[in-house]
């Protein structure tokens, strides 16, 4: 039975990875092009400038932020679109009729999202080497942090995909929640440099902690302690994993 269950779990992961691979132009190359354009524009526009409060070239500062931004967007997009398409086409019944445990569904979709997020993030890192040299202060930490962050946004994508009744609903989640929080998280600037209360307001943005701890792994400096960020981000991950598993258990918006 253990072998059967592991094949079942592996099949879902394989399906999720194959799904985005089949449309790689849209799922991998498109984000690679758009992020590469960011790198070109920022590298040209802010050459010879330093990031405020960091004493490092601006391009060194912005690379971890751009990688995380792509990681977040693609992890979220993978799980949310996989689920909304399955609901729209009706093949969500394949998952409901199959003998998946609820945690297998959560983890299977999540790992699919992580795979796409990490792939896009890694390819962008390879491109960024041409712009800043590619040094990473703590590579192991960078990988761990990236895995947790893409896990979080894959889980949020599952929630959005389950909640959404049409494609518009997913874009509401993405455009009015994910994108503003990401752009205001310190991807492009240090929150330390923000005037007045805005620096404190940024601490309420969960994406800030993610960007900040990855920046620590890349450049060895951060706005706040990376370990505090890790605790907050890790706790969010576990809470979301529990919530998503519960949603699968009750069949939220997929069972009548």
């Amino acid at each position: 039975m253990v072998k059967i269950r592991s094949i079942i779990f592996y099949s879902l992961i394989k399906r999720e990875i194959l799904r985005f691979s089949k449309v790689a132009v849209q799922t991998v190359f498109a984000p690679l092009i758009s992020t590469s354009l960011y790198l070109i524009i920022f590298a040209y526009s802010f050459q010879n400038r330093e990031a405020v409060g960091y004493n490092i070239p601006y391009i060194d500062f912005i690379v971890p932020g751009l990688i995380i931004m792509s990681l977040i967007q693609n992890s979220f997009a993978n799980t949310s679109s996989s689920l909304i398409v399955a609901k729209y086409q009706g093949n969500i019944v394949d998952l409901l009729l199959a003998p998946f445990s609820h945690i297998q569904l959560s983890l299977g979709f999540m790992i699919g999202g992580i795979a796409r997020g990490m792939l896009v993030g890694f390819v962008i890192y390879l491109v960024s080497i041409f712009f800043y040299g590619g040094s990473v202060a703590y590579p192991f930490l960078a990988i761990i942090f990236a895995l947790i962050i893409s896990g979080i946004f894959s889980l949020l994508g599952i929630i959005a995909g389950l909640w959404a009744e049409k494609f518009d609903h997913v874009s509401i989640f993405s455009n009015f929640f994910i994108t503003p929080l990401t752009f205001l998280s310190g991807v492009f600037y240090s929150v330390r440099g923000l005037p007045g209360i805005w620096s404190e307001v940024s601490l309420f943005n969960p994406v800030f902690y993610m960007v900040d701890m990855v920046r620590y792994a890349f450049v060895g400096q951060s706005d706040i302690s990376p370990w505090l960020s890790l605790i907050i981000v890790g706790a969010s991950f576990l809470a979301l994993l529990y919530l998503v598993t519960h949603l699968f258990k009750i069949g939220y918006k997929v069972k009548s």
């Binding site: 094949i7 079942i8 592996y10 099949s11 194959l18 089949k22 399955a86």
Partner: peptide
């Protein structure tokens, strides 16, 4: 099921291979 539903990403053979995997068969 009564309603026709299909996975738009995969051809017939791939669909059946994935479906086999969902039920623990490689």
């Amino acid at each position: 099921p009564q309603e026709i539903a299909f996975d738009p990403y995969f051809n017939v053979r791939e669909t059946l291979k994935i479906q086999s995997g969902y039920f623990g068969i490689r």
